[in-house]
Simulated assay, not measured.
Amino acid sequence: MRPDDWVERWLPRSWGPYARLCRLDRPVGTWLTLLPCLAALVQAADGWPALWRLFIFSLGALLMRGIGCTINDIFDRDIDQKVERTRFRPLTSGQLTLRNALYFLLGQLLVCALLLFAVNAYSRWLAVLLLPFVVVYPLCKRFTYWPQVVLGIAFNWGMLMAWSDTQNIVPIAAIAMWVGAVLWQVGYDSIYAYVDVRDDKELGLHSTAMRFADKGKQWISGFYIATVLLWLYAGIALHMAWGYYLVLAVIAGHFAWQMRIFDLARPDRNFMLFRANIWVGVLMIIAALGGTLMGN
């Protein structure tokens, strides 16, 4: 048992495999899904969003991340047996049967469906459009070097829904923020993908890390630069106050720091850099608050 394994410590033993299937014990992905969405809620509300909307979108981010992980493990249950990092996952190790995993997936989907009654019609249609990306993502690494793009689209979809539910529109500037977040995710998830390059090659899978090869620093730097430029444009188009640009400069500095210490030969460091992107999400929220509240 890991020292930080709260699932093992606090949940009934029969619940543990389900919690791990939806990655409740590994919340980094949930934070990386939620934080950009919260930033978009702040921008769309031009300040503090309604508490009930914060609750609905936070629960939605948690559930959609869990659904994505569940689908991923269902599709990858045979592949995961051959990778040291994943061979103890609930489906692969036999802690859960495929039937129970499918029932659990259906339950998560039903709860998400109930959340749709709490958003407007525009947002419901956007939620329906998201589902194909969530389903197809685990299959992408079998036929394309760019699965991280599909993941970025799915992970950050809540940013679009934040605008559609708050203002019943999704302006061009909001789409620019979203595209920037997608490119940001392609960058940081490529850093993470370098951890698995050796296993992916042996299994015949694909990733941006394999596509970038030894030019990873140049490619990822390009994605990070594009992210900052898109977020800069969005800030200008949304008439953000000066606080937004100050924090955006800090984000740019954080990206520069990542690229300075990024090392293809250091998987342990790369995983640390992947996790460090939680701070970028936090800074996005601070930037949105600075850009809205300082202008009011």
Rank of each mutant, 00 (worst) to 15 (best):
I74F: 07
A226V: 08
I67G: 02
Q108F: 00
W48F: 13
R266Q: 14
A61V: 01
L130A: 12
F255M: 07
L183K: 00
V119A: 03
N120G: 13
L54C: 14
A162T: 00
K141L: 07
V28D: 10
W15S: 06
I285K: 07
P147S: 09
D214Y: 11
T144H: 05
L229Q: 02
V149F: 15
L35S: 03
A181R: 02
A113Q: 08
R269V: 11
Y137W: 04
R2D: 04
G291K: 04
T166E: 10
G107D: 01
E84Y: 02
I251H: 03
M240P: 00
L115R: 07
L289F: 10
G107L: 02
A249L: 15
L129K: 02
V197I: 09
I169D: 12
L151S: 03
I74W: 02
L114S: 13
V170S: 01
Q148A: 06
G216H: 03
F212S: 06
S14I: 12
Q108C: 05
R9L: 09
P27H: 01
A193R: 00
M284A: 11
F117N: 09
F271V: 11
S14M: 00
F133H: 00
Y18N: 01
Q167C: 06
A118P: 07
P36A: 08
L293G: 00
F57D: 04
A39C: 04
Q148C: 01
W52F: 10
D46K: 13
F88T: 15
I236Q: 14
T292W: 10
I285L: 01
I56S: 11
L139M: 07
A287L: 01
M64K: 03
R269A: 09
W184H: 11
D199I: 00
T86H: 02
L35C: 04
G152T: 06
R99F: 13
P90C: 12
L264W: 08
A45V: 11
L230G: 07
Q81S: 11
Y244L: 04
Q108K: 00
I191L: 13
W242M: 09
R89K: 15
A234V: 12
F55M: 14
W157F: 05
F133V: 01
P36F: 08
G291A: 05
D78T: 06
I278P: 05
L34K: 07
W242A: 15
A209H: 01
D263A: 09
L38M: 13
L139K: 08
F75A: 15
R89T: 05
L35M: 05
R87W: 09
A39T: 08
I251E: 09
I175S: 10
G94D: 06
Q185H: 15
L32K: 03
C37G: 13
L35G: 06
R13L: 11
L246F: 15
G222Q: 04
V134Q: 01
T292M: 10
K201R: 15
G47I: 09
A40I: 08
A237D: 15
L41K: 06
W231A: 03
S164F: 04
A237I: 08
G204Y: 09
A173V: 10
Y194R: 03
I278L: 12
K141Y: 01
G180N: 05
L21M: 12
V182I: 14
I236E: 13
F75L: 13
K141T: 04
L63Q: 02
I175M: 13
